[in-house]
């Protein structure tokens, strides 16, 4: 579920979206903070082998269950693994899961929503009833059912979160296309003899893309929360993975003896999710003046 609904198609083309993002970062400190958090996570994910002081899965690189201290700034876990290294490597898995899950939701949601809105007729009716049913299932139940079928693993949890998000993006695309479809420029395209494929690929999709990118950015945060939640329950990433939800699940057993183990993975998830929320919402507010009265 996205918590920041759009009221209309965002007034932007793909070209100006990039510029709008930069302007938003420059003008609003919260958006700047969001971009900074995402950049930090991206840097950790891309350069993990160079940034992490130790192998994230190597045992006994330090003392067992040590509190944060110089050399081991986030402490060490029950196997003497360095928490700084685990968090840095975990960024890779966490971001990848978020991106992949949103890609699945967006890919299928876009296809279904676009076809339903553009073609109309019984396809549209069927699509709307399907949405009604899927929305009353709630996302978490869909995700749990998928994991129950596929079995617990990180990739299966990612697929499950992706599938659970399809209705959200389907409905989003559907309402965006519905607005665009009836605009005069589409009508003039048709009058000039453009075919359905051309209208969809050259005109409809480019015009709804900025809105979908913004919604997708916010959606990454929801996907990361859902997937790390599944890992926390033991239904996603399995030990010795350094995915943040899985690390947090392991830390749960040392709740009273080593509370720092709980602090850092949770904080990492919160900050990355906050980053995507702040950036996405900031850009949305700039491009969607209706909500900003």
């Amino acid at each position: 579920m996205t918590h920041f609904p759009l009221t209309s198609t965002l007034k932007s083309s793909p070209g100006t979206l990039g510029r709008s993002v930069l302007v938003a970062i420059y003008r609003k400190p919260t958006v700047f903070l969001g971009a900074l958090l995402i950049l930090a996570a991206l840097a950790a994910a891309l350069f993990a082998p160079y940034l992490a002081p130790y192998d994230p899965e190597a045992f006994a690189v330090g003392p067992v269950l040590s509190a944060p201290q110089p050399g081991y700034w986030f402490g060490t876990d029950e196997f003497g693994r360095d928490m700084v290294s685990r968090i840095i490597w975990g960024a890779r898995e966490t971001l990848l899961v978020g991106l992949l899950a949103v890609s699945i939701s967006l890919g299928f949601g876009l296809t279904f929503g676009l076809l339903a809105a553009y073609l109309g007729g019984w396809i549209e009716k069927l699509f709307m009833r399907m949405l009604d049913v899927l929305f009353s299932f709630t996302e978490i139940l869909i995700a749990l059912a998928c994991v129950a079928i596929l079995g617990p693993s990180l990739i299966n949890a990612t697929i499950a979160v992706g599938i659970a998000g399809i209705p959200v993006y389907g409905r989003m695309t559907y309402s965006l296309v519905l607005v665009e479809r009836n605009k005069p420029y589409i009508e003039s395209c048709r009058a000039m003899g453009a075919g359905h494929v051309r209208i969809i690929l050259r005109h409809l999709i480019p015009n709804i893309t900025p809105s979908l990118i913004v919604v997708g950015t916010i959606g990454i945060s929801t996907a990361i929360l859902a997937a790390s939640g599944l890992s926390f329950l033991g239904l996603g990433a399995q030990p010795p993975s350094s995915e943040w939800g899985a690390v947090l699940a392991g830390a749960r057993d040392y709740f009273s003896t080593a509370p720092w183990l709980l602090l850092f993975p949770g904080l990492a998830i919160t900050l990355v999710v906050l980053g995507f929320n702040l950036l996405g919402d900031g850009v949305r507010q700039m491009l969607d003046p209706k909500q900003n009265k």
Partner: peptide
């Protein structure tokens, strides 16, 4: 509210448990 949406419920629960429970 942005913080409230961003914080993972499972982490919040553990923190509350640690502070107010333990």
């Amino acid at each position: 509210t942005v913080m409230g949406i961003s914080i993972p419920p499972f982490w919040l629960g553990l923190i509350l448990l640690m502070v107010f429970g333990m």
